[in-house]
Computed example of a mutant assay.
Amino acid sequence: MSGPTKNGTGKPVRAAGCVLWRRTDSGGLEVCLVHRPRWADWSHPKGKLKRGESALAAARREVLEETGQRCVPGAALPTVRYTVGDRPKEVVYWAAEATGGAFVPGDEVDRVCWLAPAAARALLTRERDRELLDALLATLADTPGP
């Protein structure tokens, strides 16, 4: 096992998540954002992979743990790479349609909100999360409706 490295070198921390969405009764689109009190930010649900867990399984688990929602993952979205402290981090994302559930606040996520894309864009803390929202919208625009 290697310790922390300088300049973001070494084996990346592997994580996965989803840009979670749903259709409103009127046919509009809403995106789910999570508030993480530790970081005081608004983001998409994501988290580290457990040993032996696939990225897709981790993404679904994290959505359920952080939002209370079950989901159906769809298209892969861009992988995001950044450095946390001295460690590189790699987060694999999917577009995922919410299929139901109920949010229960916890230590990691204390609030969720469902917003139209423009409002979600304004609330997201990081530019990389706005880019994921754009990727979701492009993916949904390219997908035939029901």
Rank of each mutant, 00 (worst) to 15 (best):
L20D: 07
W21N: 00
W21E: 02
R22W: 09
R23P: 06
R23H: 13
R23S: 14
D25T: 13
S26R: 13
G27R: 04
G28L: 12
G28D: 14
G28C: 11
L29F: 15
L29N: 04
E30F: 01
V31D: 05
L33V: 09
V34L: 12
H35V: 06
H35D: 13
H35S: 11
H35K: 13
R36L: 13
R36P: 04
P37C: 12
R38Q: 15
R38A: 15
R38W: 14
W39M: 14
A40I: 13
A40W: 10
W42G: 07
W42I: 13
K46D: 03
K46E: 08
K46N: 14
K48W: 08
K48R: 14
K50N: 10
K50G: 11
E53Q: 15
S54H: 06
S54E: 03
L56I: 13
L56D: 05
L56T: 04
A57Q: 13
A57Y: 00
A58Q: 05
A58H: 04
A59W: 08
R60S: 06
R61G: 01
R61C: 02
R61F: 02
E62L: 13
E62H: 15
E62D: 08
E62N: 12
E62Y: 09
E62Q: 13
V63D: 01
E65F: 07
E66N: 06
T67L: 13
Q69N: 08
R70Y: 07
P73F: 01
G74Y: 01
G74R: 08
G74K: 07
A76T: 02
A76H: 07
L77V: 01
L77D: 04
P78N: 02
T79W: 05
V80F: 00
V80E: 08
V80Q: 14
V80M: 12
V80N: 02
V80I: 14
T83M: 08
G85C: 04
G85I: 08
R87G: 00
K89Q: 14
K89D: 03
K89E: 12
E90I: 05
E90A: 11
V91P: 03
V92F: 00
V92Q: 08
A95W: 03
A95G: 03
A95N: 01
A98K: 00
T99K: 13
G101L: 06
G101E: 03
G101I: 04
G101Y: 10
F103D: 00
V104L: 11
V104R: 14
P105I: 05
D107Y: 08
D107V: 11
D107N: 12
D110W: 07
R111E: 15
R111L: 10
R111H: 15
R111T: 04
R111K: 15
V112N: 12
V112A: 12
V112H: 10
W114R: 09
A116M: 01
